[in-house]
Nucleic acid binder design. Structure first.
Lengths: 119, 119
DNA sequence: TCAACTGTTCTACTGCAGTAGAATGAAACT
DNA sequence: AGTTTCATTCTACTGCAGTAGAACAGTTGA
């Protein structure tokens, strides 16, 4: 089951992924301070997240709980990028990134380990 | 100089990147057959691409030439994804992709080559 | 010379993500 | 009981990417 999150929804999910279960009120406070959203905007977006199953809400105090995980969303977004920009070839995306970004020796070492463990 | 392309504009650029310099007429034909666009839609999008400098147009026959390259666009889109979903950490994106193990044996082989040539 | 054709531009509608003001309703205080 | 407060919902506007019909202009053929 794949749930596509819009940018506004991601802002809310980001809070939950960082803070863990949180009340809507608190999320509204954070986003007001962080991106200047009116509290009603935050509530509207939270409701959309609930409607599409990205957030669950439980007693006591109607706490919001992230159902969709950050990793799921990362995978979805990344797969979309790979399909849109790299003709579905994941290795080309990796190759491109490695071409632009110079990794530290430490990171290279880690990467070599990861890759050598691949089947 | 970074030029953000919308999805519709990408459709046009994709033709140019694949086919090389091409007349607007031909692009319209291809996109009509490929995604059902009316020819005026294609012309409108081409004009937007020209306006933002992604496409240049030259005589004879008003041939469209891709100014922005596929690699530039890949880099822009990928960087945006990394900032949006991975807190700006490119190596984390790479690690995630490798963690999903959605790579084919050929892709893994290529990747091992790339990584072993690093540094 | 004019008519038909067709590549190109002009203009405008549409859907939807993003945003938030007004309304609601339930607790807290007097 | 009445009033104030404040979390939450209801409702609706806005901007813009996406799309294309109608108008225009240049060329071809009669």
């Amino acid at each position: 089951m794949e749930i596509k999150l819009f940018d506004s929804e991601l802002k809310v999910m980001d809070i939950l992924w960082k803070e863990g279960d949180t009340t809507a009120k608190r999320i509204a406070e954070i986003l007001k301070e962080q991106v200047g959203w009116s509290k009603t905007t935050t509530y509207t977006v939270i409701k959309k997240c609930i409607a599409k199953g990205a957030i669950g809400r439980y007693d006591p105090d109607f706490v919001c709980h992230p159902v969709v995980t950050r990793e799921q969303t990362r995978k979805l977004e990344t797969t979309e990028l790979i399909n849109k920009m790299y003709d579905g070839a994941a290795d080309q995306l990796v190759a491109s990134i490695l071409g632009w970004k110079s990794l530290s020796p430490e990171e290279i070492k880690k990467l070599k380990e990861i890759v050598s463990n691949l089947e």
